Computed example of a mutant assay.
Amino acid sequence: MLEPAAQSRLAPFNLLAAERLREAATLLAHQDDSPYRVAAYRHAADAVAALETDVRELFEAGGIAALNGIPGVGVRIAGALAELARTGRWAYLERLRGSAEPLDVFCTIPGVGPILAKRLHETYHAETLEQLEAALHDKSVKPVSGLGPRRQAALRAVLGQMLARIRPVRMPPGDEPSVDDLLDVDREYRAKAGADQLRKIAPRRFNPKGEAWLPVLHTRRGPWHFTALFSNTARAHELDRVHDWVVIYFHADSGGEAQRTVVTEARGSLAGQRVVRGREPECLSMYERDAR
Score class of each variant (00 low, 15 high):
W224S: 05
P223I: 04
A212R: 15
P173K: 01
R199P: 06
P149F: 04
K192T: 01
F230W: 15
F226P: 08
L229N: 13
D244L: 09
P215F: 01
L182H: 06
R170W: 08
D184T: 13
T219G: 06
P223M: 05
A154V: 07
V144Y: 05
G148K: 03
Q161H: 05
F206G: 00
G148N: 11
V216F: 01
R205D: 09
E176S: 08
A234S: 12
R150A: 12
V185F: 08
N232E: 09
L163C: 01
K209H: 14
V247I: 11
D186Y: 14
I166H: 03
G160H: 04
Q152N: 02
H243W: 07
N232L: 11
E176Y: 01
E176V: 12
D244I: 11
L198W: 02
G146C: 07
K200W: 00
L229M: 14
D244A: 07
R170Y: 09
H225V: 08
P177A: 10
N207F: 13
G146P: 01
L183E: 02
Y189M: 08
I166C: 14
D181G: 03
G146T: 07
G210V: 07
A157P: 04
Q152V: 01
D184Q: 12
D196C: 01
L155N: 02
L239R: 13
A157R: 12
D244Q: 13
V242Y: 10
G194C: 06
A228G: 10
M171K: 08
D186S: 14
L183S: 07
D186L: 10
R221H: 08
F226T: 04
P149A: 06
E188Q: 15
R150D: 06
Q152S: 12
R235I: 06
V246I: 14
A164Q: 14
W213C: 01
V185E: 04
L229A: 12
G210E: 00
M162H: 15
R170L: 13
L239G: 00
A153V: 04
R187S: 12
F206E: 01
G146L: 06
A153N: 09
V247A: 07
L147N: 06
R221P: 00
S145K: 13
N207C: 11
A228L: 09
R167F: 05
P168A: 15
D240S: 13
V246R: 09
E176Q: 09
R190F: 00
R151N: 13
N232F: 06
L217C: 12
V185A: 09
V179T: 10
A164P: 00
D184A: 15
L198Y: 04
